[in-house]
Each structure stands twice: as structure tokens, then as C-alpha cells.
């Protein structure tokens, strides 16, 4: 019931509409998809998703490592390497099923996955928890970008107060002197290169020498 448009080669970058995930065909009738549906997220099935198990609307492709994959030795290694190579513009996320059985294999898996390959890993207790996580991810899509509470703001910070803070790190210069100096010299570089004779009328002869010496004395 879900058909990709265009060539099959583009399926790897298929983005689900809001409120949906694209799931690999093999997940049809799984507990995870049942729980997703129960959580109000619709699944669209696709047989050509490659290694990924799910595509989320926030440009994330998800690989699910089941307990049996984790404890069956190093078979997951090639799969993870290929997953990282093949995810195109999507951000990769690996959900790892953790259990008492897989506990001792987890540190080694994590080192390979997160440290060697630089992939993101979230442990889940099973398909039900994975479904909750995916539901949450789908529902907070609109929070991405500007509203993500953890994203570094890239907007302009006001620099003037920050320059003032730096000038006050010069020994003997408090807020009053710093303001007087910046009204005259505008930038840290200009202040640093000012001659004592230029500083003197603003802060007096002693401070002028101190300031000059602070900038130019060998450290």
C-alpha cells in the first residue's frame, strides 16, 4: 500500500510524512509495530530500506540490534560498518536490545559501535521500549532545529559585554576604568597596542604603565 516514487535507488533516502515511520517489510506483524500503532504512529512498510529497520521523519535511520544479534559474536560488526556507510544524509541511530544475557557483551559492542564507528547508541529493554522511544521521536519532530533544548544557539551573542568582561581581567582595571578605556579604544586589539601616553589621560600614569606592561610582558 506504500509505493516509493522514482527509482529504487532513492528509497534509501525516503522520508516518512509526519506522524509516520517507514518500517522494513520484515517488521510487519511485530510487537514493535503493534505498539507504535497503539501509540498513534502509523507505519508504512517498505521492502527496499537496505540495512535500516526504520526511517523517522526527523531524518534519522534506525538499526535495531536484537538480543540474538548482540550475543551471536561479532557478526554485527560488518552490518554496522555497512549501515554507517549506507545511510546517506540520514543520522544513524542504533537501538540495542539489552538483557541479562547480553550484558557481558555490551561493553565490547559499545566500544566498537560508539567509539570506533562514532555511531549513536540507545539501549532498550525490548521492542515495547523501542516503540515508546520511536513514538516520542516522531511526536517531537517539530521540536527539532530551533526548539531542540540541547542544540547550541547559533544566533548572535552580544559581543560588547563580553569584551568588557575581558578588559576587566586586566589587573587593576575595574568596571569604571574598563568602560572608559573601551570608549576610547573600541577593541581589545586597539587597547593592547595603545601607548602609555594614550592611556594616561583615561586612567592616570600608574595604571597606564600597569596596563601596558600586562599586555607586553613576556608570559
Amino acid at each position: 500500500r506504500f509505493r516509493m516514487e522514482g527509482q529504487a535507488g532513492r528509497v534509501g533516502n525516503a522520508l516518512p510524512p509526519y506522524g509516520h515511520v517507514i518500517a522494513a517489510e520484515r517488521w510487519r506483524n511485530s510487537t514493535l509495530v503493534r505498539e507504535l500503532t497503539g501509540g498513534g504512529v502509523k507505519a508504512l512498510f517498505e521492502s527496499q530500506l537496505g540495512l535500516a529497520d526504520f526511517h523517522l521523519p526527523n531524518h534519522t535511520c534506525v538499526l535495531y540490534l536484537a538480543e540474538r544479534d548482540v550475543i551471536a559474536g561479532d557478526g554485527y560488526r560488518r552490518k554496522l560498518v555497512r549501515f554507517r556507510k549506507g545511510s546517506g544524509s540520514f543520522q544513524e541511530l542504533v537501538l540495542v536490545e539489552t538483557s541479562r544475557l547480553s550484558q557481558q557483551d555490551f561493553p565490547r559492542l559499545q566500544r566498537f559501535l560508539a567509539l570506533d564507528l562514532g555511531l549513536s547508541l540507545l539501549p532498550v529493554g525490548g521492542q515495547t521500549e523501542a516503540a515508546q522511544l520511536l513514538c516520542q521521536s516522531v511526536s517531537q519532530v517539530q521540536l527539532d532545529g530551533r526548539e531542540n533544548p540541547f542544540r547550541r544557539r547559533s544566533c548572535f551573542q552580544l559581543l560588547d559585554p563580553l569584551v568588557l568582561d575581558v578588559v576587566q581581567q586586566v589587573p587593576g582595571v575595574g568596571r569604571v576604568k574598563a568602560l572608559a578605556l573601551l570608549q576610547h579604544f573600541c577593541s581589545l586589539q586597539q587597547l593592547c597596542n595603545a601607548a602609555p601616553a594614550q592611556l594616561e589621560p583615561l586612567v592616570g600614569p600608574a595604571a597606564a604603565l600597569h596596563i601596558r606592561s600586562f599586555f607586553h610582558r613576556p608570559t
Binding site: 534519522t60 550484558q103 559499545q110 549513536s120 540507545l122 522511544l133 516520542q136 521540536l143 540541547f150 542544540r151
Partner: peptide, 18 residues
Amino acid sequence: DSSLISLVRSGVRLLWSS
């Protein structure tokens, strides 16, 4: 769940320790 997703999306690396 929501914090984990936001952290991953903003490029923070998460490591899991026992």
C-alpha cells in the same frame, strides 16, 4: 526518551555505563 532523542539529534554522544 525525549531527552535522549534531543541529545542525539544535537550531536551529543551518549555512552552507557554499568
